[in-house]
Amino acid sequence: MRAKMQQKIIDVCDRKIAQKGDGVGVSFYAFFANKNDDPEQLMEVATWWIKTHKLDHFEKAVKIRNMIISEA
């Protein structure tokens, strides 16, 4: 996954955790605008989320942030 996208995921997770606490969940759609303006990157994240890691639709933001950090 691209470094810029990894940083965006970390930033979004950090923001959601700060707003709602450690129990907040996220979907991979949380990292994109409502309109699909970058389908290639959406598929890249979806592949990482669904195919590579076999994650549920919603996961804890803390878990996702930690996974991204450990892979960087």
Rank of each mutant, 00 (worst) to 15 (best):
S27R: 04
T52C: 07
G21A: 07
A61Q: 09
F31H: 00
M1N: 04
T47R: 11
H53W: 11
I68V: 01
K60F: 08
D14Y: 03
F32Y: 04
K63Y: 13
H53Y: 14
W48N: 05
V24E: 14
S27I: 03
D37I: 06
G25N: 08
F28T: 08
I50C: 15
A18D: 15
E71F: 02
P39R: 03
A46Q: 11
F28E: 13
D37K: 11
D14N: 02
K60N: 08
S27L: 01
A18P: 09
E40D: 08
D56A: 15
K51Q: 12
Y29N: 05
V45N: 09
I9E: 02
V45E: 09
Q6T: 02
K4H: 01
K8I: 01
Q7N: 00
I68F: 03
H53G: 09
G25A: 08
R15I: 09
D38L: 06
G23N: 15
V26L: 06
G25D: 08
A72K: 11
I68P: 01
I17N: 06
I50E: 12
T52V: 15
V45S: 09
K16G: 09
K51I: 13
N34R: 05
I64G: 05
I10L: 01
E40T: 09
D11K: 00
N34V: 06
